[in-house]
Write a protein that binds this DNA or RNA. Structure first.
Lengths: 209, 209
DNA sequence: CAGAGTGATGAGACCTTGTCCCATCACTCT
DNA sequence: AGAGTGATGGGACAAGGTCTCATCACTCTG
């Protein structure tokens, strides 16, 4: 299948550009229409004007088409923590990581989040992948913290708390009515969790659960 | 394929009993010999004297054969937290959950842990499943804590910290030379994490990472 | 003791995911 | 014009996983 040529600037594919983009959009549309399971890779490729072969050249996995940017996110987390000021505390390192990825949460990306979340919420296999993504981000943060000299246990704990803050901040940012920028929400979530972590450490506290 | 009859007491299979057990052992042996990827479900079933059909009747998934008891563990976590004394703090609820599952970590199960861990460590797909299992246990704990009235954020945080303590305690318990009972290790790990969580909450602390 | 019922298994067709190899095409460079 | 390059198409292929139906062992009932 050959599509009409489109002039495009930038280093894109040679035929019709944006093959990866087209596949992502086609997948999201079909998943929303018929559900994730009822949609085959061949159908996605077909709607994008491509074939199954090409799909798997762009995505290692059928699920991957919904979880594209996670590698970049993990890389940015790690980079921000590694390049934070030497005197920064662990909490400040985590906050720096959040600021580093704030660029990915621009208002124009905001519209794509709700349908994507809806598709994931409707399928347990995709929720699993979402959890996996979190674990991946968490271990990237923990590695970077260890690289700064933090001991293993503290690094893992801080990373878990950081990811918890990140994911709840993302959920709030992605809400349809939200206007606040991601950074503000993320910082608030992190501060909130820090306070609650302190409360956890006081078993004599009267706060029975 | 028909095997010689074996007298057996208890509600087992009608033909050769312990089909599920045999499949698990055959799988672990083959995975250790040839690796996870190079072992097909048909081979596992064949070594167990069964067929592919029967394998998928006992396990929803090829990976599932290595991750059997997680449902039970999650159930025990939840049950212990729901039935903890009304005045128990969150930390005490988590500790109660650990005690509830200690029965699963008896010395005779200790020997099966190292080969299983070795197989998982050699395959990323299985490590992913391990992470998924953790997330599953964590959400079971969080649900139970929410059921006691804890707010969402605190419940999730406590569950994450609890699972972190649990998995590091399990790793220590499963070490070949270990003699300590699981409960003692788990409580120590939880206490350790609580202290570090408190330190995280003090950003003015001089502990740069 | 005969026959119906039950539940686990065997057998095999079938679809989808994911891999692999090779031919083909568009575009670029010389 | 011709060679090179890189993305794509096409099809064969293995394995995972689902489904259906027949078969067998065992139990229960009359």
């Amino acid at each position: 299948m050959r599509l009409s040529p489109i002039t495009y600037d930038g280093a894109m594919g040679r035929w019709e550009p944006n093959a990866r983009d087209r596949l992502e959009r086609a997948a999201l549309a079909l998943f929303a229409e018929h559900g994730y399971d009822a949609t085959t890779v061949a159908e996605i490729a077909d709607r994008a004007g491509l074939t199954k072969s090409t799909f798997f050249r762009h995505f290692a996995d059928k699920r991957e088409v919904l979880f594209g940017g996670q590698d970049m996110l993990a890389e940015q987390f790690g980079q921000a923590i590694r390049t934070a000021p030497p005197a920064a505390t662990i909490a400040e390192c985590v906050a720096a990581a959040f600021e580093a990825v704030a660029g990915a949460f621009t208002p124009d990306r905001h519209d794509l989040a709700p349908p994507r979340r809806a598709v994931i919420a409707a399928n347990s296999e995709l929720q699993e992948r979402e959890l996996l993504k979190r674990a991946y981000l968490s271990s990237a943060m923990a590695d970077a913290l260890r690289g700064r000299g933090a001991d293993d246990t503290t690094a893992r704990l801080a990373a878990e708390v950081g990811i918890l803050a990140f994911s709840s901040a993302y959920a709030r940012w992605a809400e349809p009515g939200n206007q606040q920028p991601f950074t503000a929400i993320a910082h608030a979530a992190l501060g909130d969790l820090q306070a609650r972590a302190a409360a956890l450490a006081v078993p004599a506290d009267a706060a029975a659960c």
